[in-house]
Design a protein around this nucleic acid. Structure first.
Lengths: 200, 200
DNA sequence: TTACAAAACGACCGATCGTGCTAAATTCGC
DNA sequence: GCGAATTTAGCACGATCGGTCGTTTTGTAA
């Protein structure tokens, strides 16, 4: 068994902590509740991390890693150009919809939580959001280079609009619980794609 | 002095609680910290409310009232049609930028906080967001009726896109602290206006 | 000014917070 | 299977949580 016992436990803790953070935020994940969730004692759990902030940073990093695997990697396996941009959006919506354990985009939750705060967690979060926006812009630039998108299209503006569609989708889906949130978001993104295309 | 002493204190509490809620969320506003902020004792403060949830509901209502006064009312004093839609957006961005005391749009914070939760606070929040979106849609419909906007424009889609622009602005402005967040949001909204106009 | 009501206080409840310490249990290399 | 290293538990700490007392101060109307 290559992964040591400690490492196994560590992964379990981060997994549960990530789920909890999606519900109550990173500050809201208490050591006691997390210990109960994982079946460990409070002190036994705490021994894996030097402080609560260190735990928060590791949970954030876990989220970033999962986002990379579940969204970015599949997208890079898609042909450059408009198809890749499309898939970027689809995978992003899939991420936002989440699954049984992880409901909603945790980055959006953390964005609200850490706007106006300072510290290492915010810094890491800001960097991850910049990276994500850059990834969108690169995909858009690729579509421009392929001749799929207009040459005068601003990738930054496209990214801004796409993020907006996704954020409103998350709000409509998770808070308002509107049934037609998904098709509406897709329709608006289709319109964004349409007006981004180069005239034939 | 018509406003009784109790009412004065009550207003003071709600004012400070609103500021704090903008920073740490409604759940994050603790009775103790709020008491210290207002210079009251914990029990003296708590006596004004039956429970913490009742306090949260009143704080939310206070936010709704202020939004109505600072955003909705000035907009209704603006000529119907595209000018009113423009002003709606400008006033909204102004609200999001906030002032010394209230930094950022508290509704966005609460949207993240109460997505996935249940209860009276969430219900009230959902209703307020629906009301706000309806107000946008009415303004857009007015612009269509005036002949400023295309007749085939979907007010719901316009509202969705406008909310998206505003949400990304808040993220870029408050979390990322990007200096050009405001002009970018305005430019994207200008483009939205441009493609909403009826062809002359 | 007096009498009553409204408002604020201080002390306290059980529970939980993050974080130490030490000791026991477990895992792991040999 | 033994010894060393790692992992976990037990316990305690000061602080704070939302909330409830009974009491005292303050505002207000007659």
């Amino acid at each position: 068994m290559n992964p040591s016992k400690g490492e196994q436990t560590r992964r379990l803790i981060l997994d549960r902590a990530l789920t909890m953070a999606g519900e109550v935020g990173l500050e809201g994940v208490s050591i006691g509740a997390l210990a109960e969730e994982t079946g460990l004692s409070k002190s036994g759990l705490f021994a894996h991390f030097k402080s609560k902030e260190a735990l928060q940073l590791e949970v954030l990093q876990e989220a970033i890693t999962r986002f990379t695997v579940q969204v970015l990697q599949p997208v890079l396996a898609t042909p450059r150009g408009e198809p890749r941009v499309r898939r970027l959006f689809d995978k992003y919506l899939e991420w936002i919809r989440g699954d049984d354990a992880r409901r909603g985009c945790i980055f959006q939750k953390l964005t609200s939580e850490y706007a106006g705060r300072d510290g290492a967690v915010r810094d890491r979060l800001v960097q991850s959001q910049k990276d994500w926006r850059d990834a969108i812009m690169r995909a858009v630039q690729g579509a421009i280079d392929e001749g799929h998108f207009r040459r005068d299209l601003d990738p930054a503006v496209f990214a801004h609009e796409m993020l907006g569609i996704a954020m409103v989708f998350q709000s409509a889906w998770r808070l308002m619980r509107e049934a037609d949130a998904l098709p509406r978001a897709q329709a608006i993104f289709d319109a964004l794609l349409a007006r981004s295309r180069s005239v034939p």
